[in-house]
């Protein structure tokens, strides 16, 4: 039991010792269970799934940031300098929620033609 208790103390983690990144290379590196830490695009480039591409017309945009709030994937961000929104097309799945909720209807869903 004493050896085992020591073992336990080693495993007992405080906040500082929690892993920052998880670099698993083999079976023997793995933690107990599949827990993922928040990283950008952990499920791959989901932008590849897109059929329609949202395009913002900045001339009509009133910077209400509804699209930024509504985006379910968090791919819309606000440019600190210009104040306009920017879409990360690597991860935008093209769901169209932003276009539907835009009060000025300044987001167009354009068909992807690859």
């Amino acid at each position: 039991m004493t050896e085992e208790k020591k073992n336990w103390e080693l495993l007992r983690m405080n906040r500082e010792k929690r892993p920052k990144v998880q670099n698993w290379t083999s079976y023997w590196d793995l933690p107990y269970g599949p827990v993922s830490l928040p990283v950008k695009g952990s499920a791959g480039r989901t932008g590849d799934w897109r059929t329609f591409r949202p395009v913002v017309d900045n001339e009509k945009c009133i910077k209400c940031y509804f699209c930024y709030m509504y985006c379910p994937e968090g791919t819309i961000s606000v440019n600190d300098e210009t104040g306009f929104v920017e879409i990360d097309y690597n991860y935008c799945k093209g769901c169209g929620v932003c276009a539907t909720n835009c009060p000025k209807e300044c987001i167009d869903m354009e068909k992807e033609n690859k």
Partner: peptide, 22 residues
């Protein structure tokens, strides 16, 4: 008793996601 397990925890500062797609 331990305040938390070594592999899962509840903490807003360092969020985790369990049951991610593998």
């Amino acid at each position: 008793k331990t305040p938390e397990w070594p592999h899962v925890w509840v903490d807003g500062e360092r969020p985790i996601m369990s049951n991610a797609l593998i």
